[in-house]
Design a protein around this nucleic acid. Sequence first.
DNA 1: GCAAAAGTGTTGGGTATACACCCATGG
DNA 2: CCATGGGTGTATACCCAACACTTTTGC
Lengths: 246, 246
Amino acid sequence: MQKDESAELNLIPQLTLDCAIFGFHDNSLKILLLKWKGTEYWSLPGGVIHQVESLDSAASRVLKERTGLDEIFLRQFHTFGKVARYDGNEIKKKLGHLIDPSLWYERAISVGYYALVDFEAVFPNPDTLSEECRWWDLAEVPELLFDHLDILDKALHALRLELSFQPIGLNLLPEKFTMPEMMRLYESILGKKIDPRNFQKKILKSGIAIRLDEVKKGVAHKSPFLYKFDPERYEEVLKEGGLFFI
Amino acid sequence: MQKDESAELNLIPQLTLDCAIFGFHDNSLKILLLKWKGTEYWSLPGGVIHQVESLDSAASRVLKERTGLDEIFLRQFHTFGKVARYDGNEIKKKLGHLIDPSLWYERAISVGYYALVDFEAVFPNPDTLSEECRWWDLAEVPELLFDHLDILDKALHALRLELSFQPIGLNLLPEKFTMPEMMRLYESILGKKIDPRNFQKKILKSGIAIRLDEVKKGVAHKSPFLYKFDPERYEEVLKEGGLFFI
DNA sequence: GCAAAAGTGTTGGGTATACACCCATGG
DNA sequence: CCATGGGTGTATACCCAACACTTTTGC
């Protein structure tokens, strides 16, 4: 986007943001992606920053637009500032029918956010340049435009690092959840297997989750108990030094 | 700074960077600050971003200018994007004699970096708007301009979080150092006391530091042994899951 | 009844913590 | 010789990892 145009629209020039929106469903971690109109190319949802809004508000706005959710758990994790983040030729070739490449030749710096949302509560919503917005399993992510694979990698890395200090479970799981669900959430973020006995012991000892007098019905096999978080205790444990699963 | 001027100078408009440069000396953590010409006000060193350089290169450039050092350990930690980061009245009142406030009324977003340097190797060097550049003990930091106290706080917080995963010691200590020096470095970052016996055990068992056949002379009291890092082993330990002192 | 997933306890090894005294040096 | 900080070992508690079988349910 050119400066003149940015100025007209009251945008901060050459600055954008991109969001890695994570959800959890079917025992695996998902990421919300957009498909660009008339192409087979996908990217992370992103947006511009208005002169009158903070970076955080801009990210909330973008998330609200794509997911319909307010009060989303959002964390800024890195700002991407290489000189050649976009390849002019790539844009001309892949997106030339959609946007005027001359407007996109200028360098852009992008602030990366990751978001954790309740999969069930999201209504995915394409933006003006995209025709589809949907969840992808992390293991099956298609080729992404620009440097969005880098951004996604770094988001995942930040998520792993902060797993011990952020209320990940509270934001990615529904209000009532089972212990195996929570365990598989941790497994999919960490990329490794966890022993179910040790996991349960640790969670229950920490007190962050409480067993309800209720089991999950309608599933095959033995009915698992349902749990809910104790948000105050969760916060407390994270502040006291974290919840490590290394 | 206004867009016209940015364009002339080939700068990215409305985007700056600020650096929290940490050193370690006299058993305490220090931060490098600039004093603005004709005032008693201090701030973190910062700079602009040229169209033809990456964010990381811009930060390296600023650091080279302020410290004389190349190949500095630098980490981006957060981007500060509130709408009203600068207070126009504050600038007019405090810095009106130095800069034209009309040029600074425009909002700026700042990318924060922290740097870890060998205190002894630095030659502090003021920039064009400052008359002094010197180290301050973290416990005695004066009032800072703009939102630089926030930035410093967040830098320290990031440093603490990454203490277990980054080669902090290697970058903040001289080539040969004593165990109590290293211990007090950790103490000053974490803000708490560590047991010297347990500290030594842990460091030596990890293998990141090797005792030399040499003691530090010319100090009062018993001469402490000197150690040096084993950089490969240090990297290895950090990758394997970190070096925790919680 | 059988396949699939849930639920559950114990033990051994290792790691973190707590703790106090002697030693070397400079002044 | 004394004040100061450096150097060191042990005993204990806790935590974590390893490990396998029974139960429940849907099909």
